[in-house]
C-alpha cells in the first residue's frame, strides 16, 4: 500500500526514532542462536511436563510460566526486532501488553482462581 517512507531523513521530532530499520535488524548469526534457544526451551518445557514428581510440586506452574515468558520475550525482542527498533513501537506494544496482563490477573482474582492467603 504505502511506499517505504522510512528512508526519510527529515524532521525528526522524537529523538531516537529516526534510524532506518533496515540497518538495525539482527543477522543470521543471531537468528540461528535465537532459533536454537527457542527450541531448547520448548524441549525443556515438554520434558518437565513428563516428570510426574516435578509436576506435583509448587514450582511446576511458575517454572512453565517463566519459560514461556522468556520465549515470548525472545521472539518479541529479536524476531520482531523490538530491541533494535524505534522506542515508539515499544510503547505501542508494551503498554497494551502490560494492561492486558493486569486484566487477565484481575479477572482470575475475581473468579477465585487466584486467592490472597493471609
Amino acid at each position: 500500500m504505502a511506499a517505504d517512507q522510512s528512508h526519510s531523513t527529515l524532521s525528526h521530532d522524537e529523538k531516537g526514532n529516526a534510524s532506518p530499520h533496515e540497518h538495525t535488524h539482527p543477522d543470521w548469526g543471531t537468528y540461528k542462536w535465537v532459533a536454537l534457544i527457542l527450541t531448547l526451551i520448548t524441549a525443556l518445557e515438554v520434558w518437565i511436563y513428563y516428570i510426574p514428581s516435578f509436576t506435583k510440586t509448587k514450582l511446576f506452574v511458575p517454572t512453565l510460566l517463566t519459560l514461556s515468558a522468556v520465549k515470548f520475550a525472545i521472539v518479541v525482542m529479536f524476531y520482531m526486532h523490538l530491541k533494535y527498533d524505534a522506542k515508539l513501537f515499544r510503547a505501542l506494544f508494551l503498554g497494551p501488553l502490560i494492561l492486558a496482563g493486569f486484566t487477565i490477573v484481575g479477572l482470575l482474582f475475581l473468579f477465585g482462581h487466584l486467592v490472597i492467603r493471609g
Binding site: 500500500m1 517512507q5 522510512s6 524532521s11 521530532d13 526514532n17 501488553l97
Partner: peptide, 28 residues
C-alpha cells in the same frame, strides 16, 4: 512522492504495531 512522516517511521508499520497492541486484548 509520499510526504515524509513526522517520526520517520512507516505508516503501515505504526498501524500494525497498534493492531498488535489491540490483539493483545483480544487474546487476553
Amino acid at each position: 512522492e509520499h510526504p515524509p512522516t513526522s517520526t520517520g517511521l512507516n505508516n503501515t508499520k505504526v498501524a500494525i504495531w497498534a493492531f498488535i497492541g489491540s490483539e493483545c486484548f483480544f487474546f487476553a
